[in-house]
Amino acid sequence: MSTGNFHAGLLTFLVADQWLGLNVNELSEVITPQKRMALPLSPGCVNGLINLRGRIITELDLRTIIGLPDRKEEDPYRIIVLEPDGNESFGLVVDGVGEVIDLDAENFEATPDSFSEAWKQVSHGVLKQDGRVVVLIDVEKVLQLSLKEVQRGKVEA
């Protein structure tokens, strides 16, 4: 994967004390917590459905998708709105959102082996910049992972 895709900038955000990065082109907006409707019998990674100016989008929990421990109820969070294939929008719950930084190709490395399986599944690679490690997230992989649980749900249902 080339770093060329990240010309536009990288949005950094925090999940479980880990900084992550997303290509700014892949997201449409970041919103504050919305009133959500929890849909009974929906898969675990789906927190619920939210009304975003007339559109109904699925709120996914990144932690659940990767297999990290759940967020505490009272902790603040943000939702990053993604529209990966132009068809359906999703909201991805993250702990907090940082700044948009420029990707410096020199600082880009492949995903280290030392990373846990969870992160390895969704990582494009890492950026070691300004004294921190930012994991570049592959949105497609995140979605595929989330749908795996749906497959399991299908079999059981």
Binding site: L39, P43, V46, L49, I56, L60, E88, L147, G153, A157
Partner: peptide, 18 residues
């Protein structure tokens, strides 16, 4: 409105609305 693809397999729902 259609439910997102994470929930399409649930045949107790026929969609959602506002």
């Amino acid at each position: 409105k259609q439910l997102g693809r994470h929930m399409q397999y649930l045949d107790v729902y026929g969609g959602c609305s506002i």
